[in-house]
C-alpha cells in the first residue's frame, strides 16, 4: 500500500491512527475555514472509506470533532479534535476541498495530504489594503439597503475601514465577545463624531451600515440551516453564540451612546 511509506507518521502510530489523524486534519481545516457540519462529517467518512476503513463514526459540532475508525484487519482508532476558532476563509476551504477530493479518488497519498494541509494555512488571497477597501465597500454598499443616503454610506465606509484597521492593530486576546464590544464601541463613537463634524447626517444609518461587518448574520443563518437540516445541537449552539455576539455589539454601542451623550439609534 502507498501509505505504508509514511514520512509524516509518528513512531508507534498505527495505520488506523495515521489515517484518522489525516482525515481529522482535513476536516478540522474545513471547519475552521467556514465549511458546514455535514461537509465535515462526510469528509471524514469518505477519506476513511477510500483508505480501506470498514466502519467510521463521526460527530461534529462547531467547536469539536469526535471520530473513530475500524480497519479491515480489526485495528481501531478513536480521536478528538477541539476547534477554537472558525471563520469564513473560502480560498482555504476550496483548497482543502480539493485535497479531500484527491484523497478520496486515490490521487493523493496521506503523506502528500499532510504536506498540502500544512500549506493551506498560508493561503491569504488578499493583502491588508485590499481587505480595508473591501470593508469599506461591504459597509458602504449594504448601508443603502437600510435607507442610508450617499453621505451616510460614505461615512459608514470610512468608519468600517478605520475599525477594520483598528481590529488588525489591536492584539487578539482570545475573547471574541470583548473584541466585539470594543469594535462596536469604536463604531458608535466614530459615527457620532462624523455627524458632529457635519460629514454625516444620521448616526443610526452610519452605524447600521458599519456594524454589518460585525453582526453574526451569516452564523445566525447557518445555525438556522443546521437546525432545520437535522443538526440540532450544532444549530442551537450557533444561535446562542450569534445572540451573545449581537448582545456584545449592542452593549458596545450602548456604552458609546452614554459616552457621546446622544442617541445612536
Amino acid at each position: 500500500m502507498e501509505n505504508e511509506r509514511n514520512l509524516h507518521r509518528f513512531d508507534g502510530e498505527s495505520a488506523a491512527d495515521y489515517l484518522l489523524r489525516t482525515a481529522l486534519d482535513v476536516a478540522a481545516m474545513t471547519l475552521r475555514s467556514g465549511g458546514e457540519i455535514h461537509r465535515v462529517e462526510e469528509t471524514i467518512q469518505r477519506i476513511c472509506s477510500a483508505f480501506g476503513a470498514e466502519h467510521t463514526e463521526v460527530f461534529a459540532i462547531h467547536s469539536q470533532i469526535i471520530a473513530s475508525v475500524r480497519m479491515q484487519d480489526g485495528s481501531y482508532s478513536s480521536q478528538v479534535r477541539r476547534i477554537y476558532e472558525t471563520d469564513n476563509r473560502f480560498a482555504r476551504l476550496d483548497r482543502i476541498n480539493q485535497i479531500s477530493r484527491a484523497l478520496c479518488l486515490g490521487k493523493m497519498t496521506l503523506d502528500q495530504a499532510q504536506e498540502e494541509i500544512a500549506k493551506v494555512k498560508g493561503i491569504t488571497p488578499y493583502p491588508l489594503w485590499m481587505i480595508l477597501i473591501a470593508s469599506a465597500c461591504g459597509a458602504g454598499g449594504l448601508s443603502f439597503l437600510f435607507g442610508a443616503g450617499i453621505r451616510d454610506a460614505l461615512c459608514a465606509a470610512l468608519v468600517a475601514l478605520l475599525v477594520t484597521l483598528l481590529g488588525r492593530l489591536i492584539p487578539k486576546n482570545g475573547n471574541v465577545f470583548l473584541e466585539m464590544v470594543l469594535r462596536s464601541f469604536a463604531i458608535g463613537v466614530l459615527s457620532r463624531a462624523l455627524v458632529i463634524v457635519g460629514a454625516g447626517l444620521d448616526a443610526g444609518k452610519i452605524i447600521i451600515g458599519a456594524i454589518m461587518l460585525l453582526v453574526p448574520g451569516i452564523s445566525f443563518g447557518n445555525a438556522m440551516r443546521d437546525l432545520l437540516g437535522g443538526d440540532t445541537l450544532s444549530g442551537t449552539l450557533g444561535i446562542v453564540r450569534s445572540i451573545l455576539l449581537a448582545a456584545s455589539i449592542a452593549f458596545g454601542l450602548f456604552v458609546a451612546t452614554a459616552v457621546t451623550g446622544g442617541a445612536v439609534l
Binding site: N88, Y126, C137, F144
Partner: peptide, 11 residues
Amino acid sequence: VGTFGFAVIFG
C-alpha cells in the same frame, strides 16, 4: 459593491 466587499473579506 457590498457583496464584492464581503467576498474579499471572506477570502
